[in-house]
Design a protein around this nucleic acid. Sequence first.
DNA 1: AGCAAAATAGAATATATGTTCCAAATCTGC
DNA 2: GCAGATTTGGAACATATATTCTATTTTGCT
Lengths: 273, 273
Amino acid sequence: MANFSPPANVKAFEERLLEVSENLPKRLRQCADYVAANKDRIAVSTVAEMAEGAGVQPSAFMRFCQILGFSGFSEMQRLFRETYVGGWPDYSTRLLHLREKPEGSPSALLGEFVEAGRASIESLLSTVDPVALNEGANLLVAAGMIHIIGLGRSFSVATYVAYLFEKMEVPAVLHTSLGKLDNRHAIREGDALLAFTFAPYSAPTLELVEDVAARKIPIVAVTDSAIGPLAKFRPTTLLVSEIDFGAFRSPAATLCLATALAVIVGTAKSQRA
Amino acid sequence: MANFSPPANVKAFEERLLEVSENLPKRLRQCADYVAANKDRIAVSTVAEMAEGAGVQPSAFMRFCQILGFSGFSEMQRLFRETYVGGWPDYSTRLLHLREKPEGSPSALLGEFVEAGRASIESLLSTVDPVALNEGANLLVAAGMIHIIGLGRSFSVATYVAYLFEKMEVPAVLHTSLGKLDNRHAIREGDALLAFTFAPYSAPTLELVEDVAARKIPIVAVTDSAIGPLAKFRPTTLLVSEIDFGAFRSPAATLCLATALAVIVGTAKSQRA
DNA sequence: AGCAAAATAGAATATATGTTCCAAATCTGC
DNA sequence: GCAGATTTGGAACATATATTCTATTTTGCT
């Protein structure tokens, strides 16, 4: 009856839909029309809802799915749910895969990190709120001096941002707690703080943020959770979710975001001058 | 126990999440964290999937929904299903979209960096020689102490590798030339040097490599050219080509490679012990 | 118009999924 | 270190949802 291989992606799905919809009986054509106009609903609706939308019985919609090559509605829905959540479909299973054979060849391991990095970076586009990015950039552009903090895992990102600002001649200092000195009094009115912190959030960073927040100095936070310990200070928040690989994650996405932010600020500053 | 009016929109949901997440027991906090980082999944996942993602039992996730003010998961899911119909994070089209937007808008710029980062990372698989990766890893595993150097643009990567080695309890030191001190005599027989350097190659790094090479200490180099200034010392070379965007590049790919290398070495060392 | 084939509606059934409950484990204040 | 309160895991239960089946209607053909 139906073609036996179900479409593997949305593109194939659309082709099949087009190909099939030429000569279809009345009710099934209604299904095709409704689906074509409401592809985005497939992921979040039940058969009953789709059928009602198309003005047919659930059973008719069912047959429609089968004609498209799926075993049923569930299989069709799975396709859309997976593409909806984007680049990282069941990453946890792959992770398990590695745990089972920790002696994977080095290049296989590299491959895993490549995959994790790629997915993390792509997810930036959905986790970073464009409005917040804009706002954060403006705060930093307006600042007399940008103070950068990031310790532990975030230290490398902080150093890179400091490097970029220096190259672009943007006044910025990197706060390290080298020698347990925190130069919190170097942060003055008119400055801004750019903080990087991820779980487990390092205490000195949190303390500095708290201190600075109390003085009403603007804070831009790059972090991994909207409800993390920074949240109560209501900073401008840029969210990153790094995909971990085993216990490890490379801060590739964070770095990517940080670079973009630095360049945005740098070019804006130079245009103001 | 729970607030009785369920959040009516995503904004209210986020506020409630924040408000509630202050003092939450362990499992419920896991739920909060996972939800905060994966709001988009709520619409298309089952409780079981969400619970697994958060690393808790379905029943725990259930209670979490109720604490948020919903009658259960279904009611919470309904909120997201209704609001997310239409929005579709199809990354490739979204990227195109960003490109079309007026140039220089912050999120367009982020889009560019995302694209550059993704491409750089993917290219790793072809630029990094698996044999060299293996060899490099072996050299570092065999070393008594790993000395890490990377200055300027490479400093952030060097710090991250140092961080990872420390976490994995692998003996390693980061050479910073802080205060113009180069601790070259700390590098002794049986040790190895891991050097990161990219054009323009910083002088102190080259000097250190030269000194170390003369003493026949093994060197693993992560760099951008097989014929760069390091080539004459015949180190084990791992090649990275970062795609630049304008005058800027994020070292996302280098970081990815460095992380993979560190993890390979770390796991191999722990298995030997 | 009359017959065979295809299509459909609706009920019946199977399955997946959400939800609740309670005993066991853990935490907290004394 | 104990008693009470809180939190948790897992199984039992309820419900929603997908899927199939069959009698009935519609369609297409001669």
